[in-house]
Design a protein around this nucleic acid. Structure first.
Lengths: 172, 172
DNA sequence: CATGAAAGATCCCGATG
DNA sequence: CATCGGGATCTTTCATG
């Protein structure tokens, strides 16, 4: 839901800082957003309690951990009833290898980002989905040959800059 | 690089826990992985120093922050020389709205995940890229109508389970 | 690796201006 | 919102088994 709470510029700075440094100290955070510790801490607690900050996560450098393959998969379903969508989406939620899944307009129904040990692992995963009969009609596989960018930071200022910050309303 | 360091099962548990709870206390972490505080702390520091843990980040609930639109974009370049790829990839790195970018085999050259305020913002971004002349030949736009899943946690056990953990080598 | 200890930093929460 | 505490907790290191 949008608008359940108004965020001012300081809140945005707090959120931006925490996107970058999830384990920054509360004192350093306050300093970075030009606020004293107590009010900064209160804002932070509010943002966490409201769920604006959904959580904190370590980001791993997978390339140091294991061989793996990223795959992007376009999927179309047989039928397009609510129950069909729901069933497919539920399966995606439960499949750990599916890192991301988006419903789209335009020809295909879903696009997935899948991580697997290798192409064989990926293919077995797809085969399992097909035999599970979750409604897949056609699928198309793009193997990722090179990950160029994987950002964990949403560009808050670009998204909120124009309409959310108090523009010149009531400038006397 | 793979294999610069061997990770045992405890390391994997540490990493998994930190993917889930990036701000967990070091004491609770030790407890969760069944290790006493000191050696757990040493492992953690090693993992951070090596860069296996690339960083810690707060995850935001964007839906509470602003209206936005996710777009998936397939892109083909005119020419396929190294310099062409490099130039395009450099531009992607510098464009905040591009959250993810992957080079793929199979017809298209790149697939992007873009975040914008709305479709108009997205289109202006694309127009800018086209006039910037970064080598784009054709592009295809999929508007995300519904984000189904956006996981920040890599399924470590699924990826490492079979080949990385010490299998039955030298079993007597 | 487990335990224990101890100095220093951080956290949380008041009270006050 | 700023400043100032202070007790609880967490962090980091070291010594010992």
């Amino acid at each position: 839901m949008l608008g359940s709470m108004k965020l001012d510029e300081i809140d945005i700075r707090i959120l931006s800082a925490l996107q970058r440094e999830g384990r920054i100290t509360k004192l350093k955070l306050a300093e970075k957003v030009n606020l004293s510790a107590t009010p900064c801490w209160e804002r932070l607690r509010r943002l966490e309690k409201q769920g604006v900050i959904a959580g904190y996560h370590a980001t791993l450098d997978l390339s140091q951990l294991a061989r793996f393959t990223l795959v992007l998969t376009e999927i179309s379903l047989h039928r397009h009833q609510q129950a069909d969508f729901k069933r497919f989406e539920q399966t995606m939620q439960e499949t750990d290898e599916v890192l991301e899944c988006y419903a789209t307009g335009g020809g295909i129904d879903y696009l997935l980002k899948v991580i697997a040990r290798d192409v064989d692992h990926y293919q077995r995963l797809i085969d399992r989905l097909l035999t599970l009969d979750v409604g897949i009609d056609r699928y198309f596989t793009y193997i990722v040959t090179k990950p160029i960018k994987e950002s964990r930071e949403v560009p808050l200022t670009a998204l909120m800059g124009k309409e959310h910050l108090p523009s010149e309303e009531k400038l006397s």
